[in-house]
Amino acid sequence: MAKVFVLVEHRRGSIREATFECVTLARELQTAAGLEPAAVVIGSGVAPFAETLAAYLPETIVVDDPSLEHFRFETYAAVLRDLIERETPLLVIAPHSAFGMELVPRLSAELARPCATDCVAVGMDGGALAATRSVYNGKIDERLAFAPAGGYFATVRAGSYAPADPAGTGAIRAHACPAPPAAWRTEHRGYRETAAGAVDITQAPLLLAIGRGIKDAENIPKAQALADRLGAVLACSRPVVDKKWLGKERQVGTSGRTVKPKVYLALGISGAFQHIAGIKGPGVFIAVNRDPKAPVFRAADFGVVEDMFKIIDALAEKLGAK
């Protein structure tokens, strides 16, 4: 039976959540397409990860070698070229993360096996694999088929599938690490934290988050003043940090912080998945955006189609009158 591989993403001693979302997709494809799922764990001292994955999928393949301690394209690709050639999986899936983006597209080009990146769904369409991607800022969906090749790749957008629960006990099998080339051209030199700062948005019960809709640096004090009056902590989307209008420690999203406030009030934020993925927990999400088609309204509990500055002023007025 043809196989579907899930590339296990782990970093600094733990498996990343997105892996279990890919497990859910692999299980779906087992049902829909009869593919046999297997997890692929690559790293150094990763036996415990293999144990974990064995509780999720019928088979886990482990490639364990000191040279694989930190993820790098070069070392992982060497392993995967060898493994894919030997085992010819029909599909290899990985999270569309810093890991998946670095590893999978290039590997797919080298193996001439097409890759659909950032998929929100992968399934069968008339007997062949097909992927759905969200394009043009989440306003359009595109369906993609793969040109016939021996096998395919897909990277999966965070939050597209619910993380899987454990089910059963699978087999664990070791695969030998191929011999290294004479020289590597990249070298891992370590990690660096960038989001440290005085403000901790992860603990605030009320977050007022502003996006590119704030338009100009000179509007920031207005938002800060409203946050102060509300008793909220000011947070933001990435472009506000990129422009250096607020510090990185205030950024919500995949490359910023994950927050779980009781209320998240978003002004002028479009709702890119990298932003939405940073909002967790059972709290209520209110979005204000002047564009009625903004994808943020598909994630929020309450929506307001309005100029955010009118809402800022109206809120300030109400609070001032108290």
């Binding site: 970093r11 990343r16 930190h70 790098r72 993360s97 810093a98 890991f99 990249t186 070298e187 891992h188 030199r189 370590g190 990690y191 660096r192 934290e193 960038t194 989001a195 440290a196 990185k248 420690e249 950024q251 995949t254 490359s255 910023g256 912080r257 994950t258």
Partner: peptide, 11 residues
């Protein structure tokens, strides 16, 4: 850039 405000340094 990795996730969660983490970066890795690569030569």
């Amino acid at each position: 850039e990795l996730e969660g405000g983490l970066e890795e340094i690569l030569a």
